[in-house]
Design a protein around this nucleic acid. Structure first.
Lengths: 335, 335
DNA sequence: TTGTATGCGTTATCAT
DNA sequence: ATGATAACGCATACAA
C-alpha cells in the first residue's frame, strides 16, 4: 500500500508537504504541489479513511437504520427505493453508507454504540420501531440524526405527507360520487394514526358518514390480512362502494377476494392503494394510488444529515414535508 | 469519548493491560481483567473501529456492489432480499456492510480504490455489469471477492442454479402436456445465456420443437417489454400453449396482454415466472415459478467472503450452486 | 502477570 | 514555501 510517506520519499519532500499538497492547502508552491499530486497518482496512492478518521474525528460515513421486519424491511419497494436514493445522494456528497444494527458478532450493542464504534458522522433512521429505547437513546445522543416518517422533538425529520395524501384520496373518491368509503389501515404506527385521523376528518368535513364497520385493521405489505378485511367488508349488509388499502401491495389481497366473489374492479367495487410502487402502474386496471415521493425522501434525508454534520451550529431541526401525488388510475368508478 | 487510556488511568493499570483485558488475552490476571472490563463498561468505553483498523489492517467491514440499474437494482425483490440476508449474516459474523460505488464526492474512483480507501476486508459483488473493466480490476486485485450469479476464474461465486431451474420448469410444463412452449427471456446476460441454453437443450431432449418465433427477447423486471413479446406470441398462427417469462414481475405485463385479448390464464394460455418473489404467491391464480433461494444466496455469500478473509491460505475458490425450487402454482393447465 | 515502547497513516501546529 | 514533530486510539513485541 502506497502511503503519503512513500510519496514524500519519491518526491524528495517532507511528509507534511505531501499531506498539504494532496489536501489542496494553499501554502504549497503550485509546481511542487502539482508534482506531488502527479507522483502520488502515478504511484497509486490512495488515502486511508481509517487514518483520516482517527485523526480528524470525521469518518465521512453515514449510518442507516433499516430494520428487517416484514412490513417495512427492504422487501418493501418504498423503503428500498428510499435507501437507493439516500445512498446515491450521500455518495454524491462524499459520504459512504453503513448499515447500523444491534449486534455485531457476539458483542451486542445499541444502535448508538454501533454508530459510535464505526465513527459515523450521523445516522439516518428509516424504518424501525421508533418507540424502542435504543432508537430513543440514539436520537437523544450527540450524534446528528434524521428520521423518516416520524418526528422526534428538536430533530430533523423527513415526512411523507400522509395527511395530505389521505385528504387527496378521500376527496378524489368523493368527487367520483362515492359516499360509502371503507378504509383498511395498517398496524398501529405513527403513519397509520396520521392516515386514519386524516381519513376521518376529511370524511367528516365532506359529510360522509363512516360507520365503525368500515374501518378495518390489517398489516402493511400483507395481502392476506387485507384480503380478510376485504372479505368482512364485502359481507356487510350495507357494503362500501370503495375500499382504501394500506398500500399497493396489500391491494392484491383485496383484489383477489373481490374477484373471487365474482365482483369486478371498478364496476362493482372501487379501490385505492397507497405508495405508487411499480406494481401499481403495471396492473390492469391501473391502480388508483397516492404516490409517495421516495426519491425526494431519500435525497432530502441525505442532504439534511450532511447539512447537520457539516454545519452543526447553523443548521436547524426542521420537519420537511415531502408531498406525494395522486395517481388516479382506473380503479375508482364514477358513480 | 472514553478511550482505553482513560480506563487505564481509572483502573491504575497500564494501557497495554487494558488493551489485553478488553480483547480477552489470557495473560492477564482474571480478577484484574474483570475489574478492567467492569470499569470500562461503567465508564461507557467503546472501541474505535478506525484506530483498530489502522493498527491491525483489518476493518471488519465488507463492501457490497449493487448497481442501481433498472433491471437489477434494489427495487428488484430478488436483490433486496439477497442484500438483506448478506447484511444479517455478515453482522452475525462480526462484519459491517458498506456500499461501494464509483464516485465519492468530487473524486471519482474505481470500485477497487473505493474498497481500499474504506479498508474493506473483502467485497461481495452482487448486481453489476460484470464485464465492466472496473469490476474486472476489482476481481483481479488482491482483495477477497465473492460474486453472485457470475463466475470469474479462480474466484468464489455463489450461483443460483439457472440450468436446473429451467430444466425443472420445462419438464414440469412438458409433464402437463405442453408441446408448444415459448420463452421470453431477459436481456443478454450470463444468467439469460444459461437459461436459454438450458431451455433449448431440455426441449431438445424431450423432443419438443422450438420454432424461432417462440423465443422472444425482453428486459428483466420490465412488464412492458414482456407484454409486447406476449402480444407477438399471441399473434402467431400457431401460437404457444405456454409462455415462460423472464421473471415474476415481468409476468404481469404478459398477464395484462393475455387478459386484454379476452384469454384466460391458465385456461387459454399457461404461464410460468421466475424468482418466487412475494408477488408470485399472492396473485390468483398463484403463479407457477421457480423460487430462487435468495436467503441462502445471501447467507452463503457472507459466509464465503468471511471465510476467505479469515482463512486466506486454506480457503479455496469454489462455485457454490444454490438450488431453487419449483413452485407449481396454478397457472399451468393440464392439457 | 504487568508495563514500556513503538508504529499504523494521517492531519495540524509550529518552526524555519 | 517547506519541514520537523506530535497526536489520534489501539495492538503488540518485548522487557521486567
Amino acid at each position: 500500500m502506497i502511503t503519503q510517506k512513500d510519496t514524500s520519499i519519491a518526491c524528495g519532500v517532507s511528509l507534511a508537504t505531501v499531506s498539504k499538497a494532496l489536501s489542496g492547502q494553499t501554502d504549497i508552491g503550485e509546481d511542487t504541489a502539482q508534482h506531488i499530486r502527479d507522483t502520488a497518482k502515478a504511484m497509486g496512492y490512495l488515502p486511508n479513511a481509517a487514518a483520516r478518521a482517527l485523526k480528524t474525528n470525521r469518518s465521512h460515513n453515514i449510518g442507516v437504520l433499516f430494520e428487517d421486519k416484514t412490513s417495512s424491511g427492504l422487501r418493501h419497494e418504498y423503503f428500498s427505493e428510499i435507501l437507493q436514493c439516500i445512498k446515491t445522494e450521500a455518495e454524491r456528497l462524499g459520504y459512504d453508507i453503513t448499515f447500523i444494527s444491534r449486534n455485531l458478532g457476539n458483542m451486542s450493542m445499541t444502535y448508538y454504540e454501533h454508530a459510535k464504534y464505526r465513527n459515523c458522522d450521523g445516522v439516518v433512521i428509516a424504518s424501525v420501531d421508533f418507540r424502542h429505547p435504543d432508537v430513543i437513546q440514539l436520537v437523544e445522543s450527540n450524534l446528528p440524526t434524521v428520521t423518516l416518517d416520524y418526528v422526534f422533538d428538536s430533530r430533523t425529520a423527513i415526512m411523507s405527507d400522509n395527511i395530505s395524501g389521505m385528504i387527496e384520496i378521500v376527496e378524489y373518491v368523493y368527487k367520483k360520487g362515492h359516499r360509502k368509503i371503507a378504509f383498511i389501515h395498517g398496524e398501529d404506527t405513527s403513519v397509520t394514526q396520521k392516515r386514519l385521523a386524516s381519513f376521518r376528518s376529511t370524511c367528516a368535513r365532506l359529510g360522509v358518514n363512516v360507520p365503525d364497520e368500515y374501518v378495518k385493521s390489517a398489516i402493511f405489505h400483507d395481502p392476506r390480512s387485507s384480503g380478510l378485511a376485504t372479505r368482512e367488508l364485502l359481507a356487510l349488509n350495507d357494503r362500501p362502494t370503495c375500499i382504501l388499502y394500506p398500500d399497493d401491495f396489500s391491494f392484491i389481497g383485496g383484489m383477489n377476494e373481490i374477484e373471487q366473489q365474482g365482483l369486478s374492479i371498478p364496476n362493482d367495487i372501487s379501490a385505492v392503494g397507497y405508495d405508487g410502487i411499480l406494481l401499481s402502474q403495471v396492473l390492469r386496471p391501473r391502480l388508483a394510488t397516492y404516490r409517495q415521493d421516495a426519491v425526494t425522501m431519500g435525497v432530502k434525508a441525505a442532504e439534511s444529515i450532511v447539512d447537520i454534520i457539516e454545519h452543526p451550529l447553523t443548521s436547524l431541526p426542521v420537519q420537511i414535508m415531502v408531498p406525494g401525488q395522486l395517481w388516479e388510475g382506473e380503479t375508482v368508478k364514477q358513480l
